[in-house]
């Protein structure tokens, strides 16, 4: 049972939701899937005066293919991303990440927007969004702005979202043909949160790419692989990538599951795995076309 009382609102349009946020400001909390918000309210860790549910809006839950990008509504569930053909054909790493979140019940209800807005450092989506160069649409009553994934994550559990703004859409540019992608996570058992998460894209016959690693700093770390991959994904390239991952994960914090050293060491292992996987997929694709 939640102990502190609050007012509940279930707007039926985005405009109505934005007016409520404008009116209640910092005192309001947006409720999407509730898979994070409801437990932390039950635990008394957050005590909003108003809860604005997005569950009765129409829209904001579609996956739409456009010419150069795919637009995903913030309310799309993990289950939708796991099973949607447009998502898995354009961004296999995104459906992979979605399918490794929690368990079936969490995936049925939890949303992409909710996970990104919560900005847990070990969540599965943030590294994927960085590696893909996604852009986030933030809307308030005073208008709309588009923020790059790299500018959206500001600090531990902190994003560029203002209290009067909703994350409405995630736009992901289509990948150039021959790009291989992969996402992976280190976790203890099926259904548990990641300790280290990683995502990679590899293009240009293995000479260009991006790697993003979560769980090793307050916000995910993005590494441009181009300078490492001048000679392709050689052992030497893996060695320099590993040292950069090690250095860039110095801000990792220890938690109940892992020490800093373990996280940093495993970040190197996960980086290697996810890159190898993306390289393999890029090769397979290149071979076909």
């Amino acid at each position: 049972m939640i102990t502190e009382s609050y007012e509940f609102f279930a707007p039926t349009s985005v405009d109505e939701a934005l007016s409520l946020l404008a009116r209640h400001g910092d005192d309001a909390k947006v409720l999407a899937g509730g898979m994070t918000l409801v437990p932390i309210m039950t635990l008394g860790l957050t005590q909003p005066a108003a809860v604005v549910s997005l569950n009765h809006l129409s829209g904001l839950d579609q996956v739409q293919e456009e010419t150069d990008s795919v637009a995903i509504g913030a309310r799309a569930t993990h289950h939708t991303l796991e099973t949607h053909a447009t998502v898995s054909s354009h961004f296999p790493l995104l459906s992979e990440a979605a399918s490794s979140i929690g368990d079936p019940q969490i995936r049925h209800r939890g949303t992409l927007g909710g996970s990104l807005a919560h900005a847990d450092p070990a969540a599965d989506y943030p590294p994927v969004m960085l590696a893909l160069g996604a852009r986030f649409v933030l809307r308030s009553r005073s208008g709309e702005r588009v923020v790059a994934a790299g500018d959206f994550f500001v600090d531990l559990l902190t994003t560029a979202l203002r209290a009067d703004e909703l994350l409405t859409e995630i736009r992901i540019p289509k990948l150039e043909p021959g790009t291989g992608t992969a996402a992976t996570k280190l976790h203890r058992v099926e259904g548990s949160f990641g300790i280290v998460t990683a995502a990679a894209t590899i293009s240009g016959c293995g000479r260009r790419g991006k790697l993003a690693v979560g769980g090793v700093a307050p916000i995910p770390v993005l590494i441009d692989l181009d300078s490492h991959l001048v000679e392709g994904p050689s052992e030497a390239a893996h060695a320099t990538i590993a040292s950069e991952v090690w250095e860039r994960s110095a801000d990792a914090s220890p938690d109940l599951t892992a020490s800093v050293e373990y996280k940093r060491s495993m970040a190197r292992v996960m980086a290697r795995r996810v890159i190898d996987h993306a390289v393999e997929r890029a090769g397979a694709k290149g071979g076909q076309s």
Binding site: L31, G34, M35, V38, P39, T42, V51, R109
Partner: peptide, 24 residues
């Protein structure tokens, strides 16, 4: 949201009913 003892089917899909507000 961790144990699943509260699982029910909501609009055709299983959810954990301790993470859903009755008002919703």
């Amino acid at each position: 949201g961790n144990c699943g003892a509260c699982t029910v089917v909501l609009d055709g899909k299983t959810v954990k009913s301790c993470c859903v507000l009755a008002a919703d």
